[in-house]
Design a protein around this nucleic acid. Sequence first.
DNA 1: GGATAACCGACTAATCGAGTAGGATTTAGG
DNA 2: CCTAAATCCTACTCGATTAGTCGGTTATCC
Lengths: 155, 155
Amino acid sequence: MLFSTKAEYGVRLMVELGRQPGSEPVALSAVAEAERLPLSYLEHLVAKLRHAGLVTSTRGAHGGYQLARPADEITMDEVVEALEGQIAPMECFHPTPEGKVLCSHESDGDRACATKLLWTRVQGGVNKALSGTSLADLVEFAGPRESKQSVGSAV
Amino acid sequence: MLFSTKAEYGVRLMVELGRQPGSEPVALSAVAEAERLPLSYLEHLVAKLRHAGLVTSTRGAHGGYQLARPADEITMDEVVEALEGQIAPMECFHPTPEGKVLCSHESDGDRACATKLLWTRVQGGVNKALSGTSLADLVEFAGPRESKQSVGSAV
DNA sequence: GGATAACCGACTAATCGAGTAGGATTTAGG
DNA sequence: CCTAAATCCTACTCGATTAGTCGGTTATCC
């Protein structure tokens, strides 16, 4: 598996927030029930999303969570990275702030790391998929609440 | 991390086999030494590659391993899948023999799984990167033995 | 003040990754 | 035939991570 249920649950949580029409916060317990996910586990995940600045919270009665930004300004690479940590195909892969890629094997001496080409391509593919998909895309795909719409194979 | 060191080590092992010029088998201990990897761990990995029909072995003294096919006929999706198992972004993702994708949440009743769109795109990106890269590409990228050639940033 | 809900940290069970260890089997060469 | 070199195979360990649970604290609305 490329990703764990943290990404899965967390994305579903975000979609659930994104499909809420109003501007009132929605309680985590409501999300947990709607998605049939354990509330106490969601608490951990939503904390990560909050620390990443993707959701805001209001405490106390009638409190809950909201998206920090409109859904079409949230890309899924932010979401998945907040939940799973740095997205790199391999342990030795350290993207620098300037966008370059360092491979810790590079200092091996006699040659460039043979696998670098492959992992670079894989990371490119994943990154493109994640950053090219917004939360709004998923909300639209999921359709309005309670109405199961037929979903074509166009992806 | 998307992949573990199983993929990393296994790919490096394959590259090492691919850069051997002759048709004689190379001993795993030679690969282990060249790549500075633990021999006993490589044994596990090469077993997976053998079961997948990617390498052949000859036992006994002067035995070792060889590629089962020319390097340009081996694509990296085969290699990585042999080492890591089915490449799916998420637990719930089950590709059918016909190439379609099933999501176990699909039976949730009230709607299609909201995350399906995202994981489908991610899988597409990874698959394209892996199946679009052959072992020969990596062998060429790594360059000939013992001569570190300058590697451009073109990827 | 009580109910509601976010927040926080500690704990747990199961699984997986990354090896190690030890042996059994096969084969080339002397 | 004997031995060294190799593949092959099973079992084991140790640590990290996943997927949670649990109990308690704080903040807020009514």
